[in-house]
Design a protein around this nucleic acid. Sequence first.
DNA 1: CTTGACCCTCTAGCGACTACAGGGTGCATA
DNA 2: TATGCACCCTGTAGTCGCTAGAGGGTCAAG
Lengths: 138, 138
Amino acid sequence: MVEKLTIGKLAEATGTKVETIRWYEKVGLIAPPARTGGNYRAYLPGDLARLSFIRRARDLGFPIEQVRALLDLSDDRTRDCATVDRIATEHLREVDRKIAGLTALRRELSAVILSCDGGTVAQCRIIEALGPADPIAC
Amino acid sequence: MVEKLTIGKLAEATGTKVETIRWYEKVGLIAPPARTGGNYRAYLPGDLARLSFIRRARDLGFPIEQVRALLDLSDDRTRDCATVDRIATEHLREVDRKIAGLTALRRELSAVILSCDGGTVAQCRIIEALGPADPIAC
DNA sequence: CTTGACCCTCTAGCGACTACAGGGTGCATA
DNA sequence: TATGCACCCTGTAGTCGCTAGAGGGTCAAG
């Protein structure tokens, strides 16, 4: 008899919220576990490993569908590693795109803020920079 | 009589989707405009200015609630510019946090990918790096 | 008079959870 | 034995900022 885990213990062990675990079950990332007499979920150590995998992949920013694909791949250990590499590389490129976008945004936002040197809203360069042509004042 | 705009013209002029404009109206970012006999929305040039402002702020990544605050501020032009500056600076710090988080993630993800040098999933370092201790194989 | 582009409202869906509400279970303590 | 409390259950609705679709009405051109 292997030791069993309540959902709370599993949550604590993996740094996941209880509701999140139930949600992963609902969307099919983890299988519905056995139940105790009192209808409590009873997890096995294997579930802990799988959930850790999911959390780690999520922490690295993989979307759920990519996590699902990685889980499927890791289940069939005879397969070629190339698909795994492709998924991860694709994700890396997505992260790079996000960083580039945010960096450009940061530059522009920073320029807008630097233009402000106090005064009233009517003179404010930030507001001015946001509205191209406000016909009421200005 | 000022010239009026249909929602489609307004959308085109501001680079917004029609549905988005209706949604902005629903959440109170723009006031419900007058209607034509056929129940079409009839916008005025002032609406165009306001929507341009909203779009520009959104493009800079301001969340809706901050856009709302900026709009309120820009409506009262006698007020001190400091609040505007505070909102923008706060948002800039949020953007910086996001960039820092993504950059850290990128570093880690990149390291994981570099460790892969082909072979089967069983030998894959990417999968290995994701799962800390899979008791089935390894 | 018909076609087609536009407009209307209302509802549901996206991703990835999070937060209740309204109950049941299990264990320790008085 | 009773009671309290921490934990668990299901189900639903909310988050953010839209987006997509169903099922219809309106308007101008040909």
